[in-house]
Design a protein around this nucleic acid. Structure first.
Lengths: 139, 139
DNA sequence: GTGCATCCTCAGGTAACATGAGGATCAAGC
DNA sequence: GCTTGATCCTCATGTTACCTGAGGATGCAC
C-alpha cells in the first residue's frame, strides 16, 4: 500500500498531479523518492503532508504561510501558539474581506434596482444604470 | 483644464500611472492622443472612462467584464438590461464567496480555540492545533 | 545649466497553479 | 511480441491585473 505513484498521491490528497509537483517545486514536501525508471514514489507520510498543505490552502493560507506552518509543525516541539496566531490573523483578514463583499453587494443591489424600477418591461431611456456605474462615489 | 498628462489623468481617475497604461493596452480606452513630444494627452472624457473602469474593477468585475460593460455603454442605445444581468450575476458570485468565508472563519475559530483551551499559559503538549490542521475533514 | 520629476518603451516579476509540447514508460489485451 | 491507451517525465508558456525596473528622453524650476 505504500509506494504510490504521483497519480495515486494526487487522488488521495485531493490535489491535481500538477499541484503535487508544484508543491514539491516550492519545497513544501520532504525529499520525494524516485523509482529506477525516474518516476516519483510517495509514501503515506507524503500523502499526509500533501493533505496538510491542501487543507491550509483551502483555508486561505498562502504558500508562504504554509511554509511557516510546516516549519512550526516540523519543529521538535511544535509551536502551537505561533500556529494559533497565524489562524487568528487570518480570521481578521477574512472579516475584512467579508466587509468589502457586503459593501460591494449593497452597491450592486442598488445599481440593479435602478434598472428594475426604470425598465420593468424592457429597456428604458429613464434607466440610469450605465451612468450610475460611471459615478465617482464609492458607495 | 483639458489636455492632461498621464500623471494627472491617473490622479484624477484614482488609478496609478502604470494602471492607466495597462487599461490602454487592454483596449479599454478610446484612442489616446499624443503630443508632439510623444507623450499621451488626456481629456475629461478619458478621465470619466478611466473612473468607470476603476469603479467597475473595485466592484469586482474582471477586465473582460468591463470590456462587455463598456461595449454596452458605448452602444447607440445602451443595453441596461445586459448591464443589470451582469450585476445580478456578480451579486451571486459575491454571496458564494461570503458563504465560503463564513465556513473558513468557523473552521479557523475552532482551530484557534483548540489552542486557547489547551495552552492558556503557554505551549502545551495537550494542544492539538497542529494535528487538527492536518485533519482530513473539510468542515 | 544643473538637477529632479515625469515621461517613454520594453522586459520581466508576482501568486498558484494549469496547460501543452515532445518523449519515455507501463499495463492490458490479442 | 506488439499495439494501444494511460500515466509519467521535463521544460516552457499561459493565466489575471497589474507592479517594478532598466535605459533613455524630456520638462520645469532655480
Amino acid at each position: 500500500m505504500a509506494d504510490m505513484s504521483i497519480g495515486q498521491a494526487a487522488e488521495r490528497s485531493g490535489c491535481t498531479v500538477a499541484t503535487v509537483r508544484h508543491y514539491e517545486d516550492e519545497g513544501l514536501l520532504k525529499a520525494i523518492g524516485r523509482a529506477s525508471n525516474g518516476r516519483r514514489v510517495y509514501g503515506w507520510p507524503d500523502i499526509h503532508r500533501l493533505r496538510f498543505v491542501r487543507r491550509c490552502r483551502d483555508l486561505g493560507f498562502s504558500i508562504g504561510d504554509v511554509r511557516t506552518l510546516l516549519g512550526a509543525a516540523d519543529a521538535p516541539s511544535p509551536d502551537c501558539l505561533a500556529v494559533r496566531d497565524m489562524a487568528v490573523a487570518h480570521i481578521d483578514r477574512l472579516r475584512l474581506m467579508r466587509a468589502e463583499i457586503d459593501t460591494l453587494e449593497r452597491s450592486l443591489l442598488s445599481l440593479a434596482n435602478t434598472c428594475n424600477e426604470a425598465c420593468a418591461t424592457g429597456r428604458s431611456p429613464a434607466c440610469t444604470i450605465v451612468e450610475d456605474l460611471g459615478a465617482t462615489a464609492s458607495g
